[in-house]
């Protein structure tokens, strides 16, 4: 716990940790948008969410390997993942949308295993990263450093958040998605092609994850088995922020990013992932107990 004292003695370090965390949190917010979208519209919690994120990273890795500058892959990775999401919907997900929870949990769990092992098989188990080619900026006599790629990430998240809000609000497909999320049967009767809505939603989610993964591979590292922690992070953010509240998702994601960074510094980096899972258990159990006092359940 000596590290707490260091933080108090060196406020600039504390600030650096918070800012780093927030910048990473921005990327987490993207994956959380997608999860909230699929959860809200299809009532599926996509356990393969983290694998979609990681695949976005591997898409960038592969495209960079083909000679495309890393930053240019930022718009390409989502396109690749949109197609992947669409295919997975067409093969598996459409069969489980209307079935009980049990089946959709197990099916997305299976997809998650399938994808992580597929990545492992193709790219090998090593951890990988891509250099974005952007530099790091220094402020206040070098006391604070901000990598440009992370600042870019925040911008992208805000663009995606606004874009998503506008898309859901004012496009025809967006309205169809919102109608389906409220009552799929009624939407179907009113002539909404719910199958197409679901396919679009799921593919859109994969695309958003793809953007997140592309940013992650340029800021952090990825490995075939690091997906699950992104699933858990997105889930955490969504249950704290609530479904359908885009600003709250961003705030919660910033908070999680910062909290994780502090925890990693105070407890030691080897406990950072453990902290995420610990936090998950504490938050869901805690919320459930609070709801229990009001005779409710976490549902």
């Amino acid at each position: 716990m000596d590290n707490i004292q260091i933080l108090i003695d060196a406020p600039s370090l504390a600030l650096q940790l918070a800012i780093d965390g927030i910048l990473i949190g921005a990327i987490l917010a993207l994956a959380a948008f997608g999860m909230a979208l699929v959860w809200g519209v299809m009532n599926i919690i996509n356990i393969a969410q983290g694998e979609f994120v990681i695949m976005g990273g591997y898409a960038t890795l592969t495209l960079t390997g083909l000679g495309i500058p890393p930053l240019l892959t930022l718009p390409l990775a989502p396109v690749v993942m949109f197609v992947v999401g669409w295919i997975i919907y067409r093969i598996v997900i459409f069969r489980v949308v209307d079935r009980d929870l049990f089946i959709s949990i197990l099916a997305t769990f299976g997809i998650s295993i399938l994808l992580q092992q597929l990545i492992n098989q193709i790219y090998g188990p090593d951890i990988q990263a891509v250099q974005s080619g952007l530099t790091t900026r220094f402020f206040f006599d070098d006391a604070l450093r901000l990598p440009e790629i992370r600042m870019l990430a925040v911008g992208i998240v805000i663009v995606f958040g606004l874009g998503l809000a506008v898309f859901l609000k004012s496009t025809r497909m967006g309205r169809a998605i919102r109608a389906t999320s409220q009552n799929p049967r009624a939407a179907r009767i009113m002539g909404v092609d719910t199958d197409k809505v679901y396919a679009t939603t799921y593919a859109l989610n994969a695309a958003i994850c793809g953007a997140a993964g592309s940013l992650i591979v340029m800021t952090l590292v990825i490995g075939p088995f690091s997906g699950i922690v992104y699933t858990v992070r997105s889930f955490l953010i969504v249950i704290v922020a609530g479904l359908g509240n885009i600003p709250a998702v961003i705030v919660a994601a910033f908070g999680l990013g910062a909290a994780e960074n502090y925890a990693g510094f105070i407890l030691g980096a080897e406990f950072q992932v453990a902290f995420v899972f610990g936090l998950l258990v504490v938050i869901i159990v805690g919320r459930n107990l609070l709801l229990g006092r009001q005779r409710k359940y976490l549902k």
Binding site: I45, I47, L101, I105, F109, I228, V229, T231, V232, F235, V273, A274, F277, G278, L280, V281, I284, V285, N288, L289, G292, Y297, L298, K299
Partner: peptide
Amino acid sequence: GLRGHYFAIGTLGLGIL
């Protein structure tokens, strides 16, 4: 006390934790 999704993801978290 958790149901459905929450229990599934919570236990997944416990195992990795």
